[in-house]
Design a protein around this nucleic acid. Sequence first.
DNA 1: CTGAAAGCGCTAACAT
DNA 2: ATGTTAGCGCTTTCAG
Lengths: 343, 343
Amino acid sequence: MGKKHISLKDIARELNISISTVSRALKNHPDVSSSVTEKVQALAKQWRYSPNPLAMGLLKQKSGTIGVIVPDLVSYFFSSVITGIENYSKDKGYSIVIATSQESYEKELECIENLLNLRVDGLLVCLSQHTSDYSHFNKVWDAEVPLVFFDRVCRTNDFSSVVADNVDAAKSIILHFYETGASRIAFIAGPAHLSITRERTAGYLKGLKACSLKPDNNLLVNIDLNLISATEATFKLLKLPNPPDAIFTINDTMAFAIMKEIKKHGLRIPEDIALIGFTDEFHATVVEPTLTSVMHPTYEMGQEAAHLLLSQIESLEPHFTKQVVMKTHLVVRESSMKVIKNL
Amino acid sequence: MGKKHISLKDIARELNISISTVSRALKNHPDVSSSVTEKVQALAKQWRYSPNPLAMGLLKQKSGTIGVIVPDLVSYFFSSVITGIENYSKDKGYSIVIATSQESYEKELECIENLLNLRVDGLLVCLSQHTSDYSHFNKVWDAEVPLVFFDRVCRTNDFSSVVADNVDAAKSIILHFYETGASRIAFIAGPAHLSITRERTAGYLKGLKACSLKPDNNLLVNIDLNLISATEATFKLLKLPNPPDAIFTINDTMAFAIMKEIKKHGLRIPEDIALIGFTDEFHATVVEPTLTSVMHPTYEMGQEAAHLLLSQIESLEPHFTKQVVMKTHLVVRESSMKVIKNL
DNA sequence: CTGAAAGCGCTAACAT
DNA sequence: ATGTTAGCGCTTTCAG
């Protein structure tokens, strides 16, 4: 850190006054004579004084940092949410410390531990896909550190959360598929315990029902969220005696892997198989065919989560909770337009 | 932060001993009787004692955090580098605070200011594309805060840096284009002041020379790094009386935008125009045709930058500098295989 | 109006 | 072998 940072002491010494007077002058305390206040503020400015956050943190028992835990940083969804978190927090005077669980339960434990030890003022968490035991959040609860989950959530009675309208989104996808001529609709979802899987599956089933389509267990598959599993799952679906004519999947990254596999089998998208993803990242517009996807307000989700967290931190009600659901909408592109293409 | 964190004081009170004894016992100081040491360590463990980093930071004048400034978080390149930084730093006991300049010079200034005020122990910076004045790094220099630039660098006499072998990479792309049948090779680069633009342009020119191709000013274009500019630049190139038969560009994101525009004009890739990007992100394998790109060791670059920075921090030689160049290699896919496709 | 002192959590030199 | 003290930078009583 060097010795190059100016402290109140330095200013006090230079001006031959006490540290407390400097401290007061800097905050325009009415007790301090205006001449002294002026001198102090001038020197502070000239010397670029800036309060030491470590000292302030120690005193106020608030570090001014919030911890963010995400499964990874390279997925567009997470990096975009973090961008929203970062911008909102910065404006409110908080800095963010990022930790990645790498989709591992054990690493998630470590992250929680590390960030609590760091004395973050609050936590923003998206669960790892392999987390199905949630007892490690007891520590957070006991430490009275406010926490807001986003996207992949748990224990929503204990903690606040921000999620997409997963049920509706999934349902409207099924309706769209049906309207554009599909009838054997598969869903390649994530691990069954994940909230996003559960909710989107509920929406998927609702959608099938609304279209009077019979659910087929072969068409609902839960996979580990990685490219290989997505590819394998697609392969199996295609080899079914009665393969699907449409596939909906849990995120765009999986969708790209699925798209690759479908093409590899010489099948046309959407004519032979329609495809829809979730998130709507930039690359949905550059693949061929362009990918229909659920527009997820990722940046806004980050802002909203940060907003919720900071209001909890500043209201000093660590255990106040609120559940926010964000509206999504389907962005229709080529990969789902069976009917139109067939005309 | 709650009152829920255990301090040495709490342990001392419980055990009826002094704070310093507790402190010593915890670090197995030989002066402390083994019975006391045992008792202290047992209680510390039971109560999950963890030293307060704010107090330690204040005492040691080291915050244990490093600041990372990137143009954005959503580009694969940056998020991947950060992943490398995060993993390396975590292992060494540092946490990272991320700030985004959003490709803006003014925001970059703010980030520097904020992070210095935060008392980060070091800085890892990738310049914003609109930064062409570098005087704000004087503050960093004066504060004796170690700084390592990565990818887009400046003032390499003053600060350490980690970059790709840009000249060689660009040159080998030109050779590859030439060997696969291209002769009018365009380069869509970033702003001219950026180090990556300058170096890759040098490699581009070297490559042309090596192939005895004449440089054509119409084929070397500098653009603002955004999708619209990339699209416009491509449009102009295609409308040239004598358009290019190959395009090399500064990163994969630009390449995707360019690919989209080329297809829009009904031209075939690579038959009519070959295309090569830089970074080699996952999506290069899902677009159609798959994109030839320079494999950039992004994760390793993050690790290397963090390694350099931490050794500077811990050697207490803030102004020691070292320049690291990382080897890249071309990953050939469909978008550049003119010859083979033509057979 | 201003200064001295205490305390946030911790360590290290200085007593005992 | 253990306790006391001072100090990292800051704010906030409490005394003048």
